[in-house]
Simulated scan of single mutants.
Amino acid sequence: MNKVMMPDWKYHSYGLAGLFGFFCLWFIAGTYIPEGFFQQFTLNATLMKFFILIQDSETYIHIWMSIKRVLVGLGIALLIGIPVGLLIGQNQKADAFSSQIFQFLRMISPLSWMPIAVMILGVGDKPVYFLLAFAAVWPIILNTANGVKKVDPQLLKLAYSLDATSREILQKIIWPSVLGQVLVGLRLAIGIVWIVLVPSEMLGVSSGLGYFILDARDRLDYTELLSIILIIGFIGFILDRFVIGLQKRFAV
Rank of each mutant, 00 (worst) to 15 (best):
K3G: 12
M5N: 05
P7D: 08
D8R: 15
W9D: 08
W9H: 13
K10H: 09
K10T: 15
Y11N: 10
S13Y: 14
G15C: 04
G15D: 02
A17N: 02
A17P: 03
F20M: 15
G21N: 01
G21C: 10
F22Q: 01
W26K: 02
G30C: 01
Y32P: 02
I33R: 02
P34W: 07
P34D: 12
E35V: 05
F37A: 09
F38N: 11
Q39C: 05
T42E: 01
T42N: 02
N44R: 05
L47G: 04
K49I: 02
K49S: 09
I52N: 09
I54S: 03
D56C: 07
E58G: 14
W64T: 08
M65S: 01
I67Y: 05
I67H: 02
K68D: 06
R69M: 08
V70P: 08
V70N: 12
V72N: 03
G73T: 07
A77F: 04
L78E: 00
G81Y: 05
P83A: 04
V84K: 03
V84A: 12
L86I: 13
L87S: 07
I88P: 00
Q90S: 15
N91S: 10
K93M: 15
K93Q: 14
A94Y: 14
D95R: 08
Q103E: 14
M107K: 12
I108W: 00
I108C: 05
S109P: 08
P110N: 09
P110Q: 10
L111N: 05
W113I: 09
M114R: 10
I116L: 14
V118L: 10
M119V: 12
I120V: 15
I120D: 01
G122Q: 07
G124F: 11
G124Q: 06
K126A: 14
P127F: 06
V128H: 03
F130V: 04
L131I: 15
L131V: 14
V137L: 03
W138R: 01
P139Y: 07
P139C: 06
L142D: 04
L142C: 04
N143G: 06
N146P: 00
N146Y: 12
V148E: 05
K150F: 06
K150W: 03
V151C: 11
L158I: 09
L158T: 07
A164T: 04
T165Q: 01
T165I: 00
K172C: 10
W175R: 07
V178C: 12
V178F: 06
G180I: 04
G180A: 14
Q181Y: 14
Q181E: 13
L183K: 03
V184C: 10
R187T: 06
R187P: 07
I190P: 00
I192H: 06
V193W: 01
I195F: 15
I195W: 12
L203S: 11
V205E: 03
V205K: 01
S207N: 13
G208M: 09
G210W: 11
F212T: 11
F212R: 15
L214D: 13
D215L: 15
R217C: 06
R219A: 13
D221G: 08
D221K: 12
Y222P: 01
T223H: 01
E224V: 02
S227T: 02
S227P: 02
I232L: 12
G233C: 01
I235D: 00
L239C: 09
D240Y: 10
R241S: 13
I244F: 09
Q247N: 12
V252T: 08
V252Y: 07
